[in-house]
Amino acid sequence: MNKLLRSNVSCLLKKLSEHTEIYASTEEDGVCILAKLDNYEEWTMNYVRTANSVKDVFFPQNEEIMKYKDASSDLKIEAPKPFKERIAFGVRPCDAAAMLLLDDVFLKGEFYDSYYKERREKGTIITIACEKPDQHCFCTSFDLSPGATEGSDIVLYPTEDFFLVVEVTEKGKKLIKDNAELFEDIGAKPEIVDSYKNMRTVLGDVCIPNDLNEKLKGEFDNSYWKKIARRCLGCGNCTFVCPTCHCFAVCDVARGCDGKRARTWDSCKFQDFFLMAGDHNPRPTQIERTRQRFMHKLNYFKEKYDKYQCIGCGRCVEKCPVGVHIADVITHMKEEL
């Protein structure tokens, strides 16, 4: 295992930035976000989780699918230019694990998304383990932990004055080999890694039964959905901050007869998400939409990819204005069924 001094981090980022784009955790007007960084002193550590997740780096909210020229006469379509290498620094272990869920959606199906694939291949995730999870975290319920390595290329375990560096994938090893002068080999230090791995979150385990998706199958008209949906304001907050939500809308942006086709995030909570031509909407009220959101996360996703679509990062819980809590749904469904 290697050692990386905290003071070396900004010169590591500067060195990497010659040929890659750096997305690092910075504080901007009191909000910690993962954003493209040019001044490498500004990366910060005092956050539990960034407001946006690493999903922004690989599946951005607003992405150009193609440009087109003179739409109906002789149409020419032009795909975007290849993407640059990118590094996401300061990601949390739960967000890195969320990328594996998005990989299942965008890469494993019968059709794969080439833009996402290219960004993932050209992207490296450097994770910092969590020193103090807060009351919203429940990653341990999805067999992750504040020190988990799933989905990351390199994991840094913070100690007082240096980071213990653990390479997880080939990409990680190569990156360390290329910048060997900043790292120092200090032999195996498993006790630091284990101290993070078996750290319990404040919320403790919500211990989700493995067959929760079976139980949820018949629960389509359960009155519980009506009870939670009554509180929900119908904003897209929980779905946009969630690192595993992947629904998107394709829309054309026309400028005269040229223009582009863009892909933007969309939320099942919005009223026009399922609105069809002829004003037919099978999910007219918040009850159906709230049911769709939780059934997708706890039943449909598990049926298709055999994993729950949640990593317990706690963002939707912290940001929901009216406290709709996915762990509340899980515990209620567990007791009731």
């Binding site: 909210q61 779905t239 946009f240």
Partner: peptide, 30 residues
């Protein structure tokens, strides 16, 4: 523009505001 760049257009500010009580909001009209 730095503040607005962070906006993820989730409409929580509109949905939580009592002054925003139009039957069909202008942002939902296509």
């Amino acid at each position: 523009s730095r503040q607005f760049e962070r906006c993820i257009r989730c409409f929580a500010c509109r949905d939580a505001c009592t002054a925003c009580n139009c039957r069909k909001c202008i942002f939902d009209i296509t």
